[in-house]
């Protein structure tokens, strides 16, 4: 055991070279991760394994003494996830350490076949334990990435934009389920407070269907905004959705609606005492310029 670690310390450079050569031979996708980075990771692992705290044995990978190795494996898995390596590629990184280790043991620990077998067995189990650990860390890191992306998707899907001083718009695109509707409500109300906006336009042009639940969420949002002192205008109700709303018996009587976002904007400008006028002598051309025609 102690002999094994001592041997690793004394032959660290050789082990590293053989390990890296082995990795190249099995043709990992080297476009994903640079040789320099792989080399650095391999060197760190070798250094940590060959210099464990006192009383730490290779037979027990779960012991306290190997915490630094486990942390390093976690760090490697995070970098692999970020680079887009697969789980098996990530585990292969550690399995490739086996051949150089076995070769070294056979050359240097020439005592009895029994001892040779025991050392190989210990080494084999230790590397397997490390590979299992990195595979689990890999999945853990990837789950974290997925969870973060889902959160970001939700946030991206509810962009609150300022149209004018005191006028906000929230264009809702895609199906509104309960979670998203909640998110829409929260981000709109938060934005109203942050920007001190008295008008908020909720545009549902991009919402394919409106059922009772979605309509209720929209109504709740509008009512909550009113309680805070802001007025909501609902725009972009497509004819089909208008039919559904009436069919479902949803009461939108207390809600200000406009068919187009532009109309809602004009209403908000008007309510806040502003008008948009066209400058005299600066008319918009009736036809578009014929671009690209030779």
């Amino acid at each position: 055991m102690v002999k094994l670690l001592k041997m690793m310390r004394e032959n660290q450079e050789r082990l590293l070279t053989d390990w890296l050569n082995g990795l190249k031979a099995i043709a990992q996708r080297r476009d994903l991760i640079s040789d320099v980075e792989v080399r650095e990771q391999a060197r760190k692992i070798l250094t940590l394994i060959s210099n464990p705290p006192p009383d730490t044995v290779l037979e027990d990978f779960s012991s306290e003494g190997w915490q630094t190795v486990r942390d390093q494996l976690m760090a490697i898995s995070i970098s692999r996830v970020a680079h887009g390596s697969s789980p098996s590629e990530t585990a292969q990184f550690l399995f490739s350490l086996k051949p150089p280790m076995f070769k070294l043991i056979r050359e240097q620990l020439t005592t009895t076949p029994d001892e040779l077998f025991r050392e190989i067995d210990v080494t084999n189990n230790f590397i397997d334990a490390m590979a299992l650990h990195i595979a689990e860390s890999y999945i853990e890191s990837r789950d974290k990435v997925i969870a973060r992306q889902q959160e970001e998707m939700l946030e991206l899907s509810t962009p609150v934009v300022t149209l004018w001083d005191g006028i906000l718009a929230l264009p809702v695109i895609g199906t509104l389920d309960s979670t998203r509707a909640q998110m829409v409500m929260e981000s709109l109300l938060q934005a109203i407070v942050q920007t001190n906006s008295r008008f908020a336009i909720l545009d549902i042009t991009g919402v394919p269907t409106v059922d009772t639940l979605v309509a209720q969420h929209l109504l709740k949002t509008i009512t909550a905004a009113r309680l805070m002192g802001a007025e909501c205008i609902l725009s972009g109700i497509r004819p089909q959705i208008a039919q559904t709303i009436v069919h479902l018996g949803i009461n939108l009587n207390d809600i200000v609606t406009r068919s187009k976002l532009a109309d809602a904007f004009r209403l908000a400008l008007d309510r806040s005492g502003r008008t948009v006028t066209q400058k005299p002598g600066n008319h918009t051309p009736v036809t578009a310029p014929a671009a690209g025609v030779s």
Binding site: M185, E186, V193, K220, A224, A225, L227, M228
Partner: peptide, 11 residues
């Protein structure tokens, strides 16, 4: 000055 969380809860 009603807070957003308070408004949502009231509704």
């Amino acid at each position: 000055g009603m807070q957003p969380a308070v408004a949502i809860t009231l509704v």
